[in-house]
Design a protein around this nucleic acid. Sequence first.
DNA 1: TACACTATGACAAACACG
DNA 2: CGTGTTTGTCATAGTGTA
Length: 450
Amino acid sequence: MSEKDEKINSLVDMGFSEDEANMAITRCGVDGDLSILIDSISASRVAGTLDLSNHQVTNRFFDCFGGRKKARLLEERKKKRKRYGGTTQGNQPSLDCNHDEHMLIPNPMVGFNLPNYSPPSIRVTRRILEQDIGPPYFYYENVARALNGVWTTFSRSLYGIQPEFVDSKHLCAAARKRGYIHNLPIDNRAPLLPLPPKTIFEAFPRYKKWWPSWDRRTQFNCLLTSVASATVTERIQHALESTGNPPPPSVTERIMAECKRYNLVWVGKNKAAALEPKEIEYLLGFPKDHTRGVCDTNRYKSLGNTFHVDTVAYHLSVLKGMFPNGVNVLSLFTGIGGGEVALHRLGINMRTVVSVEIDKASKRIFRDWWDQTQTGTLIEIDDVKSLTNDEVAQFVTRLGGFDLVIGGSPCNNLAGCNRYTRNGLNGEKSVLFYEYVRILNVVKSAMARK
DNA sequence: TACACTATGACAAACACG
DNA sequence: CGTGTTTGTCATAGTGTA
């Protein structure tokens, strides 16, 4: 079989038509990665059916830039297109293989809507192609501030659907800037109740006692995968003890930088400390002791990598009315089960969850939670790469289809704090995004055949 | 092998300013 | 408008201990 035929076969397996596959190979060449071909097909679907000059999401939050600034951004985009388009890339159409488009992140980062967010939002209308409306519903997540162009690729690979960017600080006491692409309805969402506390003191009143007046934080920064150790807090304590009260600005500024970076709290006189795992569980909407039983390093790591339950639950809440008999879920990059915990807290019964997760500690945490709270079936798979198209199709047949495909692919190579391997979407871990696309497309086409 | 701890100081993108 | 400044980030590699 020639390389071209092989690629066409793979693409057809994923649910693309033979014509589409042929076109993509003509445009991008037979040497291109499968991912580039998928991009190309998705792009032409979008280009062919939607008018890109008119935003499909009319949302006042995308209009929140002042006129001048917006005009400037548009100018820059034009310039970039000029710079990267056409001539330097041979005869490649710029829309297909150009990853340099900007994706505007709305400010404030409140998504399409939020519970109790005022002023009442102007009605958001979002159009999704008929063929891409669920079931299966899908829900994809990653860091909002990825490298430029990455979200354009996410969107393009996921049927041109506009991402929804939400900073969870609008829902809880910690920032968590994330983008979500999904084909769920966005009307009639309902938050989990009670609404979580939105300030540090509401969440942890006991820290008021030792909180210095010059620490003006009211919310935490993003909860990361590792925390400050004793030397950091000792250094702070020493600095405070060796200066007067109040300490000079030079000292407080340095200390504040550490506090913000590590999300420190004040637990005694001059004594700052890292948040405990159970406190992070609470902030992120997990049940008490959810991650208990593995070592602290693994608890922090898996918590740093997970969803904010309340944010995700708010988006998934629309499923409750649609599936009174429960759902079958394909959960990719499950981690400690943020999506499942959200469904559970929404009162949505999970008949079956096929969970793909490679990390042993996360798997154990999730399995323990499942055994203690669920009556449905859990099927565990280790690695997305080893999950073949045939196996996915067999699951679809066996279970009668998936109602929800949910997952957030690795951000390691996209996250700003990675100084070593922030090499973008083709990095070792983040490239697994394309496995999500592959598997989702197989599910879609297998369900369409039924 | 598993864990705890430490130092590291990159980088894009938003922002402020003239 | 360019240009310098600030901000914040689902992190990693290496070392030592048990």
